[in-house]
Structures are given as C-alpha cells and as structure tokens.
Design a protein around this nucleic acid. Structure first.
Length: 568
DNA sequence: CTGGGGAAGGGGCCC
DNA sequence: GGGGCCCCTTCCCCA
C-alpha cells in the first residue's frame, strides 16, 4: 500500500484504499438486493426496483438534479420514495441498476437500444456512449434519428394529439384509451431547460409543507445530452451539482415540469438574442437560440406571431408538452399538465389525506368536509358541490334530454351517457352500404335517404340515416379538408372510425355488421399492414387514409351499385 | 343498460 | 408569464 504525503501539509497523510470503492459498491448492491436501507423504489410497467437515492443521484444526472434540487431546499432528500419510470423498459432499467451498483453493464444485444434510450433519459452518459459504440452510432446520428422521429411524429400528430403517451399513476392508468405508446419523441427542438434567469417567485408545494412526489419524467435524451455536452465543455454551469446553485436546483426539482420545459417560441429566441446574455443562462442562451419550434405548431398558428418586428411575447402562448407533444393553451398551464405525466400530487387534503394534482381540485374536495354546497337549485332545495352537478340536476327539472342517439333516437340528459350508449352494442348495427359520394353534407344524405324512403322504403333501409355518421367519408376530415367542413371528430375517434371505415371497405356490401366488429376488424387489418412493413394506416390522417383507400372504395361502391341493380 | 356521483384534465378569464 | 379560479368535457365507478 502506498502512502501519499501531501507536500506542504504537515501531519496529513493520505492512505489510499483501492478496494474500498469496489467493496462499497458491493455492499450497496447487497443492500439493494435485500432491500436494506433502500429509500427509493423505481417502477417500470409494474416491475419494482428498490434502490438508494444516493446511488441513483451519483450515477444519473437526472436523479442528481432531482434529488440535488431537493437538498437545495433543505429537505434532506426525503419526502418521497417511489419513482415511476415507465418510459424506461423494465429490462433496460434493471440493466442500468446493475450497472449503477456493479460498474458492469450486462445486457443482451437485442436490448441495447432500450438501454441506450434509458441511459439517455436518465443521463447516464457513459452507458449511453458505450451503447452507441456497440450500435455503431454517433450522438449526431442519434440526434438525426431523434429529429426523424420528431418529424415522423409531427406528421402523425393529428392522430395522436390529445393522447397522453405515459402511463400515469392515477386511476386513469387503467383506461385503455389512455395507455398508448409512449410519446418519446425528442427532437432537436427540445433542449434542456436552462435555470431561470431570476428566482421563481411562486411558492412550491413543498414550501407549503407538503411533500412532493418525484418527477418521474426524465428530460429528453437530447436535453440530457446537451446538458452533458455543456458540462464536458467546461462550463461550470453545465451540470448543476447539488452543492451549487442550490436555489436553482431546488426550483428545478419542485418545478420539475421545467426540467422538460418545451423550447421557447421563436419570439422568445429573438428576445434572447436581443438581451444577448441573460444572467445565469450562459451557454443555455445559445442553446435556446438554436431551438426550433415544431413546424406543426407554427403551421397551426399556435406559436406567437412575430408581429411588428417580432420582439413582443404574446401572452397566453401555447406551449408544447415535451412528453406527449400536446399543445397546452394558456400561460402557466404547462406545469399543471406536466403533473399528469409525473403523477405528482402536491396538494393534500389536511382532513383526509387525499392528494390532488391541482389546488382547485383540492378546493372542491374540501367542500365535502366543510359541507359547502355553493350551487343551489333554483327549483328545489337541492344544493350541489359542482356546477356541473347543478347543470345535470336542472335537466331533471326540465326533463330535457338534448342528447339523442342518431342510431336509435334514444335521448339522454348527459352527453357522456349518449357516448357510452353509442359505444355499446345495442344500436350499432350498420348496413355496409356507403353513402353516395359527392359534396353533400350529412343532412343532404339524410334527405336523400328520406327521399328514398318515400320512393322505396326497402331501398331506404339499405341506407339507414343512423349509419351515416359511421359511413360517410365526408365527415372523416370535413370533406377534402374544406374549411367549410372542419374535422368533426376527435383524433382518437377519427382513428377508430378510420379503422372501421377501412374494415368496412373490405366487407361485402349490404352485410349487417356492428361498429365494434368493424373497429376490431380494422385493428386486425392494421396489424397485418404493420407485419408487412406497410404503413398501418392508423398513423395517417383520415384524409390520407381515405385517399389511400379511395380505389378500394371505388370498387366497393361499384359492386354495391351492381348489386343494387340486381336487386331491382 | 341506465342514471348519478365523482375525479381528471384542458381552456378561458382574470389578477 | 405564472397562477388562481371557474367552467366544461370525458371517463370511471357504483347502484
């Protein structure tokens, strides 16, 4: 064993213990395996991985910032113990944990890409580099790939907009419609959120004495890599260490949506250019200048316009969620939205302990404890907690059932009940006859059906009015994208309908078939397309699908007309 | 299957 | 621009 004497420091002897680090790691790994002293549990798709916060903070930039920020607020790193990381594949997470505790990465080659992505997400640069080496990729190539993914995503954004790509911790996690493919699109448009130029003024939940749940949504790989690059480039502000910039770190954690804050709009970039050097931004300002707003956002006019020289920020600027790419309208609404991804519920009821993601929800909840019912019915003594309860109640007084099923004409007082009804099987039998083509709107087609009914009731039956919402390609995208006929359906509904329409086009005309069957058949066909390496269709806009299927529909339509002639 | 209650999430308005 | 408050829609759960 060598004993190192420090020159000029009398009495100080440095005695190295080369095996210490390995032993330490080994003990920590044993503790992890036995669950001893584990103060953090990582979860991924149901799999749970007990671990140590300190180790994760040591190995991962993401956790370092997460926990370091907390220390910055003087909480000592306590307050939460579960971190949901569904964006990292369980096997990849397991491999990364093994690496953290053994300094050895053991993964099958097939899982290399998952590990690479996980390492990027969590900011484990050496693992990411090693994976890239093995995969023969460069960071630049990764960036290009990310850009391609972003472009691909943007091209399909219409279909996925509004769908959260992250399985959340709320009960909605079980909602099949909500659990969709993870939106890990991380184009170059996403950069690491720089530390704010000035201290953030609003109070964090922790400052209210409430413990925060961790952000479970790591920054995008590009964000992390930019951070790491910046750190390697020597900028001391590049990587925020726990002991440095505590206030900023503290805000970073409790304002963790900011970790993944979307890029500023071009106007902001101009502003930065104007200001040139914002305090505390350093190279970040350069990064922000290099930021690009997603083209889709620009095309849709959601980016702040550069009117009058383009130096003014437009208030209420929509912001794009870096996780699900959804555009969030309204200033200050993005942090609120981000909590839907992180599962953070900072607002706790002091009476019953129930937690909420939003304080306004907590406020409404508190009414249950206080007995406050601020919405009285003007017609009876009933009072209600929610305005919508009163609204529903009033419909009982009036007897109004404004929501009528177009299939069976059953009326409902609530729209969601109508929707639920229509999703059922009771009244969804369709005739596979396509409505007549042409620019007419549904009303026109209904009138056409009415005329048919007058002239030939049997013929009218072949084109029931209640099938029109499902069959009319006019409603898929508003009829050739005409501004006069805007899209009528929400993306998910459009997709389901598109799938059903596709399946419909494959069926023999005049066959009775339920909408659910059509939808399932559409899903099968989509799967077959994917298996053949074709575009599954579900990622296309309804208009594109319709174009693609136009020929098929022509054939079906001709067949239908032939059969119609035969019927006569 | 339907009616009703409640929760979650987004947008508008305002400070 | 951030956040509070409110309204609305959608969904889930239960009877």
């Amino acid at each position: 064993m060598q004993v190192a004497m420090t020159p000029g420091e009398d009495g100080l002897i440095g005695i190295p213990f080369p095996e210490h680090s390995n032993e330490l790691l080994s003990h920590l790994n044993n503790q992890r395996r036995t669950g001893l002293l584990c103060d953090l549990t990582l979860t991924s798709h149901g799999a749970r991985y007990p671990t140590h916060r300190s180790v994760m903070a040591a190995v991962s930039v993401y956790f370092r910032r997460l926990f370091g920020a907390e220390e910055g607020l003087g909480e000592g790193g306590g307050g939460f113990s579960v971190c949901q990381l569904d964006c990292v594949a369980p096997d990849a997470l397991d491999a990364l944990l093994e690496f953290a505790y053994t300094a050895t990465l053991t993964i099958p080659s097939s899982g290399m890409r998952d590990v690479l992505r996980g390492a990027q997400l969590l900011g484990i640069q050496c693992v990411a580099d090693a994976c890239r080496d093995i995969l023969g990729e460069t960071e630049e190539a990764e960036g290009e790939k990310a850009e391609e993914q972003r472009a691909q995503h943007l091209s399909t954004e219409r279909m996925v907009e509004g769908e959260s790509g992250v399985v959340k911790g709320s009960r909605r996690k079980t909602d099949k419609k909500k659990v969709k493919k993870v939106g890990l699109h991380h184009g170059n448009s996403l950069v690491l959120n720089p530390p704010p130029a000035s201290p953030i003024s609003h109070s964090s939940p922790a400052s209210d004495g409430l413990h925060s749940l961790p952000s479970t949504q790591p920054p995008s790989p590009v964000q992390e890599e930019l951070c790491l690059k910046r750190g390697r480039s020597g900028d001391p502000r590049g990587i925020r260490e726990p002991g440095r910039g505590a206030t900023l770190n503290g805000r970073l954690f409790h304002e963790h949506p900011r970790i993944a804050q979307p890029p500023p709009v071009p106007v902001l970039i101009d502003k930065l250019s104007e200001d040139d050097e914002m305090e505390g931004f350093g190279d970040d300002s350069l990064l922000m200048r290099n930021t690009v707003i997603p083209t889709s956002a620009v095309e849709r006019g959601i980016a702040a316009p550069t009117v009058g020289g383009g130096r003014k920020r437009k208030s209420q600027t929509p912001q794009q969620c870096p996780v699900c790419q959804k555009i969030i309208h309204g200033a200050g609404k993005l942090p609120r939205h981000m909590r839907t991804h992180t599962g953070e519920k900072p607002f706790q009821c002091t009476t019953c302990g129930v937690r909420f993601t939003r304080n306004d929800k907590l406020k409404i909840h508190m009414r249950k404890h206080t007995g406050e019912r601020p919405y009285p019915c003007p017609h009876c003594p009933a009072r209600f907690l929610h305005s919508y309860d009163l609204k529903n109640h009033l419909s009982l007084h009036s007897g109004a059932r404004p929501f009528e099923c177009p299939l069976c004409h059953k009326a409902f007082a609530r729209e969601d009940h109508l929707q639920r009804h229509r999703k059922g099987h009771s009244c969804l039998e369709l005739r596979t006859r396509r409505p007549r083509r042409g620019p007419e709107l549904m009303e026109d087609v209904r009138e056409d059906a009415g005329r048919r009914e007058q002239s030939n009731p049997l013929e009218a039956l072949s084109l029931p009015a209640h099938s029109l919402p499902f069959l009319s390609s006019q409603v898929l995208d508003g009829g050739n994208g005409s501004a006069a006929h805007p899209p009528l359906m929400f993306p998910s509904v459009e997709r389901e309908r598109s799938l059903a329409l596709h399946a419909l086009a494959q069926l023999r005309p005049h066959r009775l078939v339920g909408y659910p069957e059509l939808f399932l058949r559409g899903l099968e066909m989509r799967g077959a397309r994917e298996a053949k390496g074709e575009d599954p269709g579900g990622t296309q806009s309804p208009a594109a699908q319709r174009d693609q299927w136009g020929d098929e529909e022509e054939i079906i339509d001709d067949e239908a007309e032939e059969e119609e002639l035969e019927d006569h």
